[in-house]
């Protein structure tokens, strides 16, 4: 009796905790509310199953616990019941999977008008690069990295000269514009993680990964690292600020380009070389 009640209480308590929990996902700041909806669907379906199974179990314990003279019913199997349960489960699973795959398709299909920006992780800080006036970013390589060129931008690539480089600072984004976030790491795995964005992706040295999103509200958000990257993993933080377009433009105007940062002689060397071709 007591056992049955406690089991039932576990189920009821879990549901109540879910409903009244003050700990819930942060208000979303991008277009990925689809992801939140899929999670909600999943919560509903799994919640019902969880409650049903535990409640049934509690009832069994209540109703059929041992008493003098009780004999268990002999019933090796019931194919029909098992098939129905399997089919029901398959339908429930499909109801979660179908929206999931649908949204995943959107997640991996970057709209053509998305602006590319770059986030670079290194132990244990973030750097950012935005395309300059030409709207394109220059190529990079780990081998180019030096104290004067911490992001490893290719000096010989003319698209790179006007790139805006923000070394271990904060990132600004304009609201309402789709961005494709290119992710790069120079040492170990990192993961550019902003809880409000929902989207995230690992940054892998030796390759460029990406995700895309459209910020839908302004604000300042914490950036954390979500892939273990060594001792100071938990301290690897910065902020991303979503601005109205005008504020964004004002901020952008104050940033330095790669050419400005890496000094005169780098620029002349680059023009000399590309001029020679």
């Amino acid at each position: 009796m007591a056992v049955a009640i406690i089991l039932l209480l576990v189920a009821v308590g879990s549901v109540l905790f879910h409903i009244y929990s003050p700990w819930w996902w942060t208000p979303i700041a991008t277009n990925w509310s689809y992801i939140d909806h899929t999670i909600s669907i999943t919560f509903w379906i799994t919640g019902v199953v969880f409650f049903a199974v535990i409640a049934f179990m509690a009832y069994c314990v209540f109703r059929f616990h041992h008493k003098e003279g009780r004999q268990a019913h002999y019933n090796p199997e019931n194919k029909k019941l098992e098939w129905w349960l399997s089919i029901g489960t398959a339908i429930g699973v499909a109801a979660m999977l179908a929206p999931g795959l649908f949204v995943w398709h959107q997640f991996v299909t970057v709209p053509a008008d998305a602006t590319e920006i770059e986030v670079m992780g290194q132990q244990w800080q973030w750097s950012f690069r935005l395309p300059g006036k030409d709207g394109r970013m220059g190529t990079t390589d780990v081998r180019y990295i030096s104290p004067e060129n911490p992001m490893g931008v290719n000096r010989d690539d003319k698209h790179g000269q006007d790139d805006v480089v923000i070394e271990s600072g904060e990132l600004h984004l304009p609201v309402g514009k789709p961005v494709k976030v290119l992710l790069r790491s120079v040492d170990v795995l990192h993961d550019f993680y902003v809880p409000e964005f929902r989207a995230k992706m690992d940054m892998v040295p030796g390759m460029v990964t990406y995700f895309w999103m459209t910020p839908i509200r302004t604000g300042t958000f914490d950036v954390l690292c979500a892939e273990l990257c060594g001792s100071a993993h938990a301290q690897m933080r910065t902020k991303v600020i979503v601005d109205e377009q005008s504020e964004y433009d004002a901020w952008l105007a104050q940033q330095k380009t790669f050419a400005e940062l890496s000094g005169r002689n780098a620029v002349t060397k680059a023009t000399y070389r590309s001029g020679g071709k």
Binding site: V49, M57, C60, V61, F64, H66, A72, H73, S86
Partner: peptide
């Protein structure tokens, strides 16, 4: 996996459950 769970709880149904 779900079938296994169902079959566990269905084993309890009309059993003689010694706690």
């Amino acid at each position: 996996t779900a079938i296994k769970v169902y079959n566990w709880v269905l084993t309890l149904w009309r059993g003689d459950i010694h706690l």
